[in-house]
Design a protein around this nucleic acid. Structure first.
Length: 512
DNA sequence: GAGTTTGAAACT
DNA sequence: CAGTTTCAAACTC
């Protein structure tokens, strides 16, 4: 749906982040391959199968004859070639012995040659220097069992694969989990951007929930320590990385980093050092898919409002491109705009913000949206919000887009669009700020509950009065909040709490 | 490059 | 399944 002529659009990028989580995972290293069938190194290196250059393996086996999983080459299902191994049998000349060894290995473990990292279309043999585009997803099928490395050295298979340790791991003193300062330090030393993207990924991942991507698992013990030390992940993540992230990537600086937090499952907590908790964003119950939809709708509405404030610019457009062309553009855009209004309807109905609704009605009836706005609209049509766009009779044809683009490029509307974009991004930032605070509140609540309920195997959601408690907390926060937009978000959240633990974060149309 | 450390794999 | 041994990579000096 994205047109090639589109200009770079931050708002679009953010919307895309919320909507999609097409995450490329390239593990730093993946030794094990699906098939034990050997491939020659030349084949392997050429990456004929998947166009992935694979680093030459050079094992140094001495005692295993390269016929056990100790041998990287054997484990990877490739012949030794150019290795410094001694008494190597992992070659064509010893194919019989090799096949026998494969059989024995598979007999012992049928999954021996399958990838160790689940749910990650990783590419093998990517060095630390190459992982700047990586993001952390997936988990080790068996988990690591590290004792001394803190899972922050390549001894650890999880670390080596550039993934977080999971509940599968039985490691001790694990530091390979999201939000760990030591881990962050390691990654910053190796490649700062990796850490940033990982944080972002985890934040979005956790906040939006499992419907979008896999969940991160983090050590349970960490959560316990953190909660009782009173040090929140919000503090850590935002304070430690936000500034740096802002420098490099406004998306990465999203306050959604708050979700890099941990909700301990007390019922499953073990006292041993290797006990773990399933990673769960504090926003997991809050930020529903519908909320994201509403947010995007809100941004579209806001786009219209912002555009309305640029009426002078619109008049300028009419003067420059001529009334006829302008009317034509309106006519061609009428259908999609009408449809987009219907999408906005729930938001408007929910909040009865007549001013904004009217403003939108007025505006979108007289002025084509900016490419940025169209970007948001188009994004919404991309499956998640509209399902099949054509099935809903929604279509923004290329002619229209081209017209808009041409207009944008030729008549000086760029400034108006920039202002429009600025407003959208500002509001989006405010909403995210609200989510951060909401996450903090929930985390604080869990923390206090844990202090109360230590020893009681009862999950937070078991408390029937949590909704009222949440409402109270939110009310207190709202009273003290100095940011209007955030206040609105929390008023809305508070109003919808209604005695339930799950907060309906339907977004309230803000005053612009 | 040698020696040490580490953790997965193999074995009991 | 747990404990021990073997092994080779990772790491240190």
């Amino acid at each position: 749906m994205f047109s090639s002529h589109r200009l770079p659009q931050p708002s679009l990028t953010i919307a895309s982040i919320l909507i999609t989580s097409t995450i490329t995972i390239r593990n730093a290293r993946e030794r094990k391959h699906e098939s034990p069938s050997p491939r020659s190194q030349s084949q392997n290196n050429a990456g004929l199968k998947d166009n992935t250059p694979k680093k030459q393996k050079h094992c140094n086996c001495r005692n295993s004859r390269c016929l056990k999983l100790y041998c990287e080459c054997f484990a990877a299902g490739i012949y030794c070639d150019g290795c410094k191994c001694i008494n190597c049998h992992n070659n064509v000349d010893n194919e019989t012995a090799r096949q026998e060894a494969v059989g024995i290995t598979l007999e012992r473990n049928p999954d021996a040659f399958k990838p160790k990292i689940a749910s990650s279309p990783q590419k093998p043999e990517v060095s630390m220097e190459e992982v700047s585009e990586t993001q952390v997803i997936g988990k080790h099928n068996k988990g690591c069992h590290c004792k001394k490395s803190g899972c922050l050295k390549k001894y650890c298979e999880c670390f080596q694969a550039n993934i977080l340790c999971s509940e599968n791991c039985k490691c001790m003193d694990c530091k390979n989990f999201e939000g760990c300062d030591e881990r962050r330090t390691v990654f910053q030393e190796e490649c700062p951007l990796v850490q940033i993207r990982q944080t972002t990924n985890a934040a979005i991942d956790g906040a939006v929930g499992p419907s979008i991507s896999g969940t991160h698992i983090t050590p349970k013990k960490r959560k316990v320590q953190e909660i009782f030390s009173g040090k929140s992940i919000v503090d850590q993540t935002v304070n430690t990385t936000a500034q740096y992230q802002q420098e490099l990537d406004p998306i990465a600086s999203s306050p959604l980093s708050v979700s890099a937090s941990f909700v301990s499952d007390m019922a499953n907590t073990r006292t041993s050092g290797s006990s773990r908790s399933t990673y769960r964003s504090v926003l997991a119950d809050v930020l529903q898919t519908q909320s994201v939809k509403n947010l995007c709708s809100l941004l579209v509405v806001l786009s219209g409002v912002a555009a309305n404030t640029n009426a002078e610019v619109r008049g300028e457009v009419v003067r420059k491109i001529g009334p006829r062309k302008y009317e034509a553009s309106i006519a061609s855009s009428a259908q999609p705009l009408q449809d987009s209004r219907s999408v906005l309807k729930p938001v408007c109905e929910n909040h009865a913000n007549k001013d904004v609704t009217d403003a939108v009605d007025i505006d979108i009836g007289n002025r084509p949206p900016s490419p940025e706005t169209l970007g948001l609209m188009c994004d919404e049509q991309d499956g998640m919000f509209f399902g099949n766009g054509s099935a809903n009779g929604v279509a923004i044809d290329n002619t229209y887009l081209n017209m808009i683009q041409t207009s944008s490029n030729s008549d000086g509307c760029t400034d108006a669009y920039a202002e429009q974009e600025r407003l959208i991004l500002t509001k989006f930032r405010d909403v995210l700020g609200g989510l951060v605070t909401l996450g903090s509140i929930k985390e604080t609540r869990y923390s206090s509950l844990m202090k109360k309920d230590v020893g009681i195997k009862k999950g937070p959601t078991d408390n029937g009065d949590r909704g009222a408690e949440t409402k109270e907390i939110l009310g207190n926060y709202t009273t003290n909040c100095s940011i209007p937009a955030v206040t609105e978000v929390f008023e809305a959240a508070c109003a919808r709490t209604n005695g339930h633990d799950t907060i309906d974060l339907s977004l309230r149309l803000p005053a612009v």
